[in-house]
């Protein structure tokens, strides 16, 4: 599909705009793992209501859009159907993002756009680890 990159760019602009609204509106960095993680471990403090609102909209709006315009995501997530892979991956993403203080949105979108040394270092590390993991588990072990 030749429109893939265009959809990617358009969606990317929307993601960047979301981060810009969060920064200039609320003075906070829009990091999905920080927002969800602080709600999970109770460290959100007085930011709790606004972070809950963010998560609620992040869950509800794509679900409604997907119902209204199924063509936008015709294949769902295509996620692995191997429970062990999903559980191991989920635990690693949960622990890793909290240990490293960020994920693709915080370190990637928000960090790279201000040339943050920590954001750049973390992004290189998780991209490298992700590529190595896919190479190993898809091409050598053929389990994903």
């Amino acid at each position: 599909m030749e429109a893939d990159w265009l959809r990617g760019l358009l969606g990317g602009l929307m993601i960047g705009l979301a981060a810009a609204v969060y920064l200039l509106g609320n003075g906070r960095i829009m990091g999905a793992s920080g927002i969800l993680g602080s709600l999970v471990d109770g460290s959100a403090g007085s930011d709790r209501p606004m972070r809950l609102a963010f998560v609620a909209a992040l869950v509800a709006v794509p679900a409604l859009l997907w119902l209204a315009l199924p063509g936008l995501a015709p294949l769902g997530t295509q996620a692995s159907r191997q429970p062990l892979v999903l559980i191991a991956a989920g635990l690693m993403v949960g622990i890793g993002t909290r240990l490293g203080s960020g994920c693709t949105s915080g370190h990637g979108v928000c960090g790279l756009s201000r040339l943050s040394p920590r954001g750049i270092a973390a992004t290189l590390a998780y991209l490298g680890a992700g590529m190595l993991t896919v190479a190993l588990f898809r091409h050598l072990l053929t389990v994903i």
Partner: peptide, 12 residues
């Protein structure tokens, strides 16, 4: 943390 996250990200 980023390495552990990246490995999980690649896996799923």
């Amino acid at each position: 943390g980023a390495l552990v996250f990246g490995a999980g990200w690649g896996l799923a």
